[in-house]
Each structure stands twice: as structure tokens, then as C-alpha cells.
Design a protein around this nucleic acid. Structure first.
Lengths: 131, 131
DNA sequence: TTTGTAAAACGAAAGATTTCGTATTTACTC
DNA sequence: GAGTAAATACGAAATCTTTCGTTTTACAAA
């Protein structure tokens, strides 16, 4: 019996929609479509389908407001960020977060300012743990 | 005229194969299949197809060795790691690497040891830049 | 050379994701 | 209540990804 693998991860378009919902807090199909860039010409029904799928997968819930559905994430952006990082780390960094950061800080495109911020973050966390 | 969007990113199965090739350095279809876990029952021809696709997309090149093809990555794992991080950062972290690291170091699952390693990496990079 | 075996070439089925069209329903207005 | 504008419901076309079967080719051994 083959277990249906539920990926826990958003597809490309699902992420696109969740990103707008995270910004909005919640919203209707129309609200989300209005957030998308001009050049993204997506039919209204396509948007409705994506949100229907997100609800099936339980990434959002909906309530009714008049005749419309208002959709709202069940999973915070921060939680999904953590999940994505875990996935990337597993698939590409041998499940070793330090090596992920290593690759990041060795990227020449990274600014000194960003590096400083990163160090401050790490320091703060280390202090809190030990203090 | 719609521009064919070439994604630059590997699909799930493509990544699976590239990972083995990165480990091996190079290899035949058979070599790669032998690296895959036991329970991954993939027909030989499926493996051959994936490598053919990877060659079309120019993630690998091949040379002939007797009657076999030997495949070799054109893109290093480190370069692909950088590319993936850039993509994730753009899509989910507002193109701000520091916020990606913030999420990472705030993950409770992260060990103190990993944190220490991360700080060492950042320090070394900061020193090299200024020194 | 013939023959056997493994690989390559190719197309296409199977599966998943993305997009959309049609039909129906809903709430509002008169 | 009937008309209307906008939303939902649903299925399915279009596209992309993954898997595999069939046929052809290449090499090796007798």
C-alpha cells in the first residue's frame, strides 16, 4: 500500500498566493489578485482554484462574508520559512545548517552590512542561551 | 511573443540525480542508479531519461566510454547551493539574507554547536574583508 | 560473422501543477 | 419576485514532471 506523500511544501503558484495572504492578513480572491503584479494576467477563476486547493491542503481556512469567501493562512509565514529552510538544508546542505550559512556568507554578493546584521543575530541568540 | 522561461532550478528528481553526480564526480546511468537508496525502484530507462534531460538543460555534459555515456556536472554543487539560497531568499525572505539567517538561528532545533560554527564563519569572513 | 547482453534513443503513458471555461448560486436593487 | 452583477463550484484543458516500454545500437565473446 503506497502512502500518499503529502509534501508539506507549497508549489510555486501556491507560494505566490500565500505570500499575498501573509501580507494582507486575510483576503478574498479579488483581494489577492489585486496584489499580483500588473503583468500577471490570471483569470479570476484561476485564482479561485488556487485558493480552493490551498484550503483543501489546509494552508488556509475560509469564512463567508456576504457572498464572498475570505481566506486566511493557517500557517504563519515564519513557520513556513523555517519549514523551507529545513527542507533546503536537508536536500542540499547535508542537514547541516552551518554549511548553509557558510555558503551564504561566502557569497560575494553579500554586503558587509548584511554580514554585520547576521553576526548580531547570532550573538544575541548565543547570549540569550547562555545568559 | 512569450519568452520561454528557463528556470535555472532543478526539479526534485533532477536534484536527486545531480546530488549523486556531485558525490561521484561523474558517472554512468548505472553508477547513479546504484547510488540511490534500495527502496527507490526506478527503471533503468527512467534514469537514462533524467540524465538526458539534465544534459538538454546543460546541467551535465557527457562523453562516451566504450558504449556507455559518462555524465558529469557542468555546475558545481557549491554554485547550485548559492543559486538555491538566492532563490529562496528572494521568494520567501524579501531578498534579505539577514532575515533568512534570523529565521535559522531562531529555530529552536538549532544546536549551540551549530550556532558557534555559524558565528565563527561570519567572523572569519568579516575579518578577511576588513583585514 | 553470429549471437547475446547491456546501453542508448525515443516516444509516450502516468501523474502533478497551472490555467481557464461554463454553469450555477448568491446577494443586491428595483 | 425578476433582473443583474459578481462570486462560487466544478470539471477539464494545457503544461510540466516523472516514469517506463519498445526498438535500435554498440560492444564483446565464441
Amino acid at each position: 500500500m503506497r502512502q500518499k506523500k503529502k509534501s508539506e511544501l507549497l508549489t510555486e503558484v501556491e507560494l505566490e498566493f500565500m505570500t499575498e495572504l501573509w501580507d494582507l492578513g486575510e483576503g478574498t480572491v479579488r483581494d489577492v489578485l489585486d496584489q499580483l503584479p500588473e503583468e500577471r494576467n490570471l483569470a479570476y477563476t484561476s485564482g479561485a482554484t488556487i485558493l480552493r486547493i490551498l484550503e483543501q491542503k489546509e494552508f488556509v481556512t475560509s469564512r463567508k462574508d456576504g457572498k464572498r469567501h475570505v481566506f486566511k493562512p493557517t500557517l504563519g509565514k515564519d513557520a513556513y520559512q523555517t519549514r523551507s529552510l529545513k527542507d533546503l538544508s536537508m536536500k542540499l546542505f547535508d542537514d547541516t545548517p552551518a554549511s548553509l550559512v557558510a555558503r551564504l556568507v561566502n557569497d560575494d554578493a553579500l554586503t558587509e552590512e548584511a554580514l554585520g546584521q547576521i553576526r548580531a543575530l547570532v550573538d544575541r541568540r548565543l547570549k540569550n542561551d547562555s545568559g
